[in-house]
Design a protein around this nucleic acid. Sequence first.
DNA 1: ATGCTGTTTTGCAGCGCTGCAAAAGCGTAG
DNA 2: CTACGCTTTTGCAGCGCTGCAAAACAGCAT
Lengths: 340, 340
Amino acid sequence: MRREVTLRDVAELAGVSSRTVSNVVNGYANVTERTRVRVQRAVEELGYRPNVLARNLAQGRSGQIALVVPYLDTPYFSELLQSVIRAARARGYNVLIDQTDGDPEHERAFIAHGSRRLLFDGVIFSPLGLDQRALADHDPNLPLVVLGERSSDGTFDHVGIDDVAASRQATEHLLDLGRRRLAAIGDQPYATGEAAQLRTRGFREAHEARGLTAREDLIVGTPRFNRKDGAQAMAYLLDRADPPDAVFCYSDLVALGAIHTLISRGLRVPEDVAVIGYDDIEDGAYSNPSVSTISPDKEMIATTAVERLLLRIDSPAPPPAVEMRAPHKLIIRESTAGKG
Amino acid sequence: MRREVTLRDVAELAGVSSRTVSNVVNGYANVTERTRVRVQRAVEELGYRPNVLARNLAQGRSGQIALVVPYLDTPYFSELLQSVIRAARARGYNVLIDQTDGDPEHERAFIAHGSRRLLFDGVIFSPLGLDQRALADHDPNLPLVVLGERSSDGTFDHVGIDDVAASRQATEHLLDLGRRRLAAIGDQPYATGEAAQLRTRGFREAHEARGLTAREDLIVGTPRFNRKDGAQAMAYLLDRADPPDAVFCYSDLVALGAIHTLISRGLRVPEDVAVIGYDDIEDGAYSNPSVSTISPDKEMIATTAVERLLLRIDSPAPPPAVEMRAPHKLIIRESTAGKG
DNA sequence: ATGCTGTTTTGCAGCGCTGCAAAAGCGTAG
DNA sequence: CTACGCTTTTGCAGCGCTGCAAAACAGCAT
């Protein structure tokens, strides 16, 4: 395996200094057309390609950002991931992915002062296991953008949607159908369950706004937002004396699990039980029945997050922390509206 | 922002040479307990963390591998991705992800002699837009492991499952149910459609093995293996004079799309039409009806790929190319067997 | 003491690039 | 012909680490 071609090799062939070659390669101003052409030719003749590692070291930056999410096989995240990669690539950055499984230690390792630090210039982070307080304890020099329901403590940016309003909207939709025994699946009444709690709040507020009272006994918790938990929670609800006639699920996966249980028990969706989800993943649009849902603008969340992060990376003094709300909308499908 | 602590800083404090500090930090042998402790203490006192960028340059390696797949929001890939990350992390490597959208240019850029080259020490690549010939034209110095249905040309390793056998098994399962008008959805009769063609071959062979003949007019092509294409192809099949009584879909997403069409037309699955998919994605297990499928051992594919790649990266002379077959199994669910 | 062997520590060069500031070139004005 | 300001090119140091080979040390036998 022969040695790689270096700047110096090109310089020698072109008869200029290696610094000039660097200038040409990086498209700096103030290079005469004459030399530019000469260098360009030498570059091509030798098949020179810059050594990213050396450039990184010299510049003290890696040109990479990390995207840290709890689960990659969750459609919501894999759909988001796509948009993040696209946005970052457009700005010349690579994306390093990591899945934490919601493990607090793993999450902490990514935002703490650690040896991985230099591998990325900043982090887009969707926390699950770390609560608000633990989040505050991040490497102060690490540009950080947080996704989801945590709020900013002033040292990082935060991008999310208005969960309370969205949940309220979803619940109101169920009430509009005339349903009155509404269940909610997905509550998480502990420090790291902020997202869930906001949705529960929206669920309650929707009732109150109509002079109704949410049935507290129909609010069921789940450890995760996946199909299995949804299926189990639904089974639990159906085994009660007075099962619900509508269910607000805190994610589409939960909704899919719940629907699976309903159908296999011979119930009809939405006739017997209407179901609405949250996240607008692709599966929900093609399932039987298709799933009504809250659709956050993922593309916007991703591009906003990347933009803010790069701004943070590039600015010498940390810019003021920003709270950003991406828009969302209610999408009505068969699981609440029935067949067309 | 103050300067980072370097090896030299630690060396000074500990009263040893910077090389010794390096030895301690990297756990090299031949360091006396006395010095190790002294250095260790200095490291902690100063909060030293090695600069990965500098290490990379000095060692001429990046400690990263790239995983290049066509689509990240396809559950098959996002599930695979997880396992790859886990396996790589266990061996001290980070994973850089890229999605190509099946664009041949984009794919080529990743395996060709290019400036990104140094960013990763090797690539695990699932080609879609590049055919066998284009694949051969990769940077010979790039350790490469290819996933899917291409076969190796001797310059890279290949990991996949036996598509023909698996497809045959799926088809035989449908025949065992007594169905005789079998359709196949997903054929791609062009250079980059090797995966599809192997599945079609298996479909035909299953018929032949029983002295039957596959209905060529019921083999439908699709540009991609997603829900929408599955839904459309199914609609096309149902509009025929003699619609099929069973369908072999070349991916679970295609199957989910097909089932969606069937149900919305008022047909019963599997009573009227039995459906089997391919890939064993999680959705298929919780859909209504749940989807019978061919389940490739993804965990094994991922770990094998990573292992081979690292072997290739670490060995001075390129090891001989290997063709590896991961096991698969037939999973029978409601879409062929009905409710349990 | 001296030589020998094996272990531990060190010094230096160099990975390939970019930042910085100085040097060279060049055109115009005095 | 010299001076001045601007553009273009250069040289060098240094990013922080590791590879290599030499140096220092230690233990033991002679």
